[in-house]
């Protein structure tokens, strides 16, 4: 038969969690959480809030003599601007695989780094590139055009001068 009478607790009996252990664990936990928070705070620093790269919007003046369907690459930009029968459009020249700059080839574009090939409309025809070259938003502004590299538009979008 089980003993049911509760033994009167004494100040000298061992506690389930010793007082000093509790204080020790609590202070250790507070130190670890403080260090964790500090660590997260420090990791926040390297993630830049403002990117130092040049503006992604720029204006282009197409040369009068630009033949239909041949690219005009504004100096310092990895974008080709074309004029065809239906209007003007801009296409990114940055390969969607690993960011090399594609070159125009007889049957479209080719990437020098890993051999991706793109059709003249930017769609992938060979190699590792996962996506087509995006067409970029272009708007007419007087006799110039404004290209926004950050906004892509459907491949058949054209603007009129």
């Amino acid at each position: 038969m089980r003993q049911t009478t509760a033994t009167p607790s004494s100040r000298l009996d061992p506690e389930p969690v010793a007082r000093r252990d509790f204080l020790g664990i609590a202070s250790l936990a507070s130190m670890l959480s403080a260090m964790l928070l500090a660590g997260i705070g420090m990791l926040r620093l390297p993630k830049a809030a403002v990117l130092p790269s040049a503006s992604k919007k720029f204006s282009v003046q197409l040369p009068e003599s630009l033949p239909l369907g041949s690219p005009y690459v504004p100096p310092g930009r990895n974008v080709a601007v074309f004029r065809d029968a239906k209007g003007v459009y801009a296409m990114s020249l940055v390969c969607t695989h690993l960011g090399c700059i594609v070159k125009q080839a007889p049957d479209g574009f080719e990437c020098p780094c890993h051999g991706s090939r793109f059709a003249p409309d930017g769609s992938v025809s060979k190699g590792p590139a996962p996506k087509s070259l995006p067409c970029l938003r272009i708007t007419a502004a007087g006799d110039k055009f404004i290209v926004d590299e950050e906004v892509s538009v459907p491949a058949d979008t054209r603007v009129q001068a």
Partner: peptide, 16 residues
């Protein structure tokens, strides 16, 4: 995108 941005500090390979 996060890994690339942490590595480059930018969206292109530049001074950062």
């Amino acid at each position: 995108g996060l890994q690339r941005q942490l590595l480059l500090g930018s969206d292109t390979v530049g001074e950062e």
